[in-house]
Deep mutational scan, measured.
Amino acid sequence: CHSECLGNCSQPDDPTKCVACRNFYLDGRCVETCPPPYYHFQDWRCVNFSFCQDLHHKCKNSRRQGCHQYVIHNNKCIPECPSGYTMNSSNLLCTPCLGPCPKVCHLLEGEKTIDSVTSAQELRGCTVINGSLIINIRGGNNLAAELEANLGLIEEISGYLKIRRSYALVSLSFFRKLRLIRGETLEIGNYSFYALDNQNLRQLWDWSKHNLTITQGKLFFHYNPKLCLSEIHKMEEVSGTKGRQERNDIALKTNGDQASCENELLKFSYIRTSFDKILLRWEPYWPPDFRDLLGFMLFYKEAPYQNVTEFDGQDACGSNSWTVVDIDPPLRSNDPKSQNHPGWLMRGLKPWTQYAIFVKTLVTFSDERRTYGAKSDIIYVQTDATNPSVPLDPISVSNSSSQIILKWKPPSDPNGNITHYLVFWERQAEDSELFELDYCLKGLKLPSRTWSPPFESEDSQKHNQSEYEDSAGECCSCPKTDSQILKELEESSFRKTFEDYLHNVVFVPRKT
């Protein structure tokens, strides 16, 4: 048989008469490798580009789960590009990614509803959504962080984005990388972005840091009482949809009607710091009717980097990364020049730590249904340095008659930039024990000054392991946590139920 035959053949030295091919099969003959313009397919066939392209389009058009959109890589027609490569849609070739590779997620039936953290986790790592997304989240724990972890990498949506009755959302900033909504599939009414009845939605994105392009379709905003109209108009300008909307697409009466839409800028007039305090004062603000001013709200939190936005980490279910302080308005003076500047002394802060701070007014709604208010920009203030805590785990070892090696770990709280350490030492008198000992005694162990690591005695271990207080009263049991108490109650309830079950099964009433 021919060298490319495997198993047997019907005619000697003829690659077209093989029972099976050793390498690849091409047009009725066995070959060692697939010549151009053919590609290896499933490690035994040679196919042309049209064959591989037909497989790709067949799966793409069917949208069946589990099928493969075949691509070409290293002269092979394979189910998908290997790690580190992405497909070129024009020629199906796998090309190296520039940075992290995109991950295209194809949605069944063309859309997916995100109504819980669990459903959001199914899209973790996706960068391109081939379909439409509907966000409908009523509640949950730590929602802002969970949504950002699972949806934060999405850069492109081919269909539309719909935010509907998501009472738990305060902001859409968890879509931190969303840059493009194509609108290839539109919501009824030709809408590519749809926001309806979101009672706590206050911000779409921080438009000073976020760009969003909507290729096709219109915007729809109705019944978002805490979303200011200025935020919607800003989205029109940034996304390129200005002029597409009709009169009733953006409701003037049901958007922002319960919001404090600040239209003035508060400026800080005085800032002073110490290692654990920050004193702030800002310019006074009074609405047209000074009785509408209820006070100020001061927001602050630790910020290692200057990239904080107002609604980071917030949701309507209680999660809030900001510390909020309510401040009463100052006494009002008739003389504008003698107006008191409101302020606040922030206490209990960490030394040498940068804080993000902003302040906003708290006002009631005027009778004319106009909203007044003022808010400052987010500023960054760093507390002063102070003395560091003591170095940890000092170790001293003498390696000769004239040297001592000293080692330690950095302090747990540096409280500033540590530039150097101060080492103090003092000579001590020799131990009298060394002169009084009889060095001729056998088995004498000389006193040693070398360091030995501390260890816990058996008594201390027994005390720590004991669940009861000892007789001397030195140790006591740790208080039980809520989960331990709940577990004990469940076990007790189970024992009672099981005992009742045994009584009912074992003891049967005697027939009379």
Rank of each mutant, 00 (worst) to 15 (best):
T241C: 14
W282I: 03
I163F: 10
I357F: 01
P342F: 10
L153R: 07
P411V: 10
D206C: 10
F175L: 10
S192P: 03
H341C: 15
T127Y: 11
K242N: 11
K360W: 15
K162T: 02
P394G: 05
P329F: 03
S400Y: 15
G139W: 06
Y167Q: 15
N190T: 07
S338D: 01
L108T: 13
L219A: 10
L279Y: 15
I379W: 06
L252F: 14
N320W: 14
W352D: 15
A144H: 11
G373V: 03
C228F: 04
I134T: 15
N263L: 04
M235I: 12
R182I: 07
I405W: 08
R124L: 10
Q382P: 02
N307V: 12
S269L: 12
H341L: 08
L345P: 05
Q199C: 13
A195T: 05
V390N: 12
K253V: 09
K162E: 05
M297P: 00
E146V: 04
E148I: 12
D115F: 04
F299L: 10
S173K: 13
V381P: 06
E262N: 13
K350Q: 14
N198M: 06
V117G: 13
I327H: 02
L123P: 01
R291T: 14
E231M: 08
R179P: 00
H341M: 06
L201H: 00
N399I: 10
G313Y: 05
S158F: 10
E187L: 09
K242P: 06
Y300A: 04
D335E: 15
F311E: 15
G343T: 15
Q306E: 05
S401G: 13
E246I: 04
S132V: 02
A149S: 05
S401F: 07
Y167T: 14
Y305E: 04
Y305R: 09
R202I: 01
I395A: 12
C105E: 01
D326K: 05
I278L: 08
Q403R: 11
K226M: 10
S239W: 03
N200W: 02
F175R: 00
G131F: 01
G313P: 06
A149W: 14
K177Y: 09
T254S: 07
C317P: 09
G373D: 06
E264K: 04
K234C: 12
I232L: 13
W352I: 15
L186G: 14
H233L: 02
T383W: 00
S366R: 12
S171M: 04
D206A: 14
Q203D: 13
R244P: 11
L293Q: 10
M297A: 03
F311V: 09
M346T: 03
P351S: 08
F311W: 15
K277N: 15
S333Q: 13
N248R: 14
N248P: 09
S269C: 12
N136I: 02
N320T: 13
L266I: 04
R247F: 11
S401M: 05
T323P: 01
P288A: 08
S274P: 00
L133G: 00
T323K: 10
E231R: 10
G256M: 06
Y160E: 03
W344I: 03
S400C: 07
F174S: 06
I378K: 03
W282Y: 00
L133S: 00
A374E: 02
F221M: 14
L161G: 00
S171A: 08
K242L: 14
E148W: 10
N190W: 01
S116L: 04
F268R: 00
S398I: 04
E156D: 09
L204C: 11
P388A: 05
Y300D: 00
F175H: 01
E122A: 15
Y223D: 06
R165E: 09
R370W: 11
G125P: 01
V308N: 04
R281Y: 14
T383H: 00
D326P: 05
H233Q: 11
V117Y: 02
V359Y: 02
L147T: 02
S239N: 03
L293Y: 03
L153F: 08
K350A: 09
E156V: 10
S173R: 07
N340F: 11
L345I: 13
L331V: 12
S376L: 00
A316V: 10
L227Q: 02
R138L: 13
E155M: 06
L123F: 10
Q121Y: 02
I154H: 00
H341N: 13
G313V: 12
S116A: 04
Q258F: 03
D289Q: 03
S274V: 03
E264P: 08
P288K: 06
A149H: 08
D312A: 04
